[in-house]
Amino acid sequence: MINEILQAIIFPGVLFTIAMGFLFDWLDRKTAARMQGRIGPKITGPSGILQPLADFLKLLFKEEIIPSHADRVIFLFAPALYFLAPLLSMLFIPIIGPTPLAGFEFDLLAILFLLAYAAFVVTILSYSSASSFTTIATGRLVLQYVSYEIPLVLAIITAALYSRSLSVEGIVASQSTLWNILVMPFAFGVYIIALMAELEKPPFDIPSAKTEIVAGWLTEFSGRALSFLKLTKEVGYVFGSALAVSLFLGGGLGPEVAAVPPPVLYFVYFMVKLLLVGFLIFVLKTALARIKIGQATELFWKILTPVSLAQIAFVLVLIQGGVLVAT
């Protein structure tokens, strides 16, 4: 019992997830900087690896300002509610072994629910601060959410259909011979693009476009709330990549090495894949300019939704024809 509680709190639970969030933030900043010919974080810790943590702590101690016209209750509590979403979702991802910390038979549905929950919380959060910038940001946020939600869910469903399981554990286990990405490359692509929209990374940083609407829905937040909102975005980044690894890249499965104990090996494989997916997003986000909300909606509805439907049809044909059936 003690062991499980420790696992949930420290490794691979909450604290590990938060640490990964900081690591992703640092990697994001460092790689983007190097690709743009800059140095990036440098001073705090070796190569500035502690910079995200330093930023987080600094914001924690800053004054918190609540706008007079804001809805105080939502404004104060919604950041905490938002913070829960990716943190909880991470518990359904198997990290140090084929069994996740809190997995159950239909946990993929729970993940889908948490995705919708996060979008909902962020919307009321944004609306509660009631300034012109956040009002526009809310509109964009909702529009972006209804745009990327369908392709994102379709991509996840494709993996679930093929693996004939609604639990992340089952989907990972079904990929021991063939990774899902080889069967459904388009679903993976759609998932990554939709994920970038969910994380508001360029080219989909429309609801928080800093040159248009200041900081978007983050505009009125300061101090603790801002530090946790920023951390939540990073943890969401980790969770999104981890889900991609579990659904399409076979989780921590890989060739066995005799000398290394299986949990360590599983963890190493998982981390390598996680960082690769993270890196893919870093590259895409650095290489693209921000598009407009209408163009984003068009992209998701007119291109990516038909693509993911076609991918589902293809997978169904494979299953019906018995050409490739997941083990």
Partner: peptide, 14 residues
Amino acid sequence: IPEMFRTMLEKPST
């Protein structure tokens, strides 16, 4: 993207 990777291998200009 190609130029990005090329820049990554170069010395930072800042």
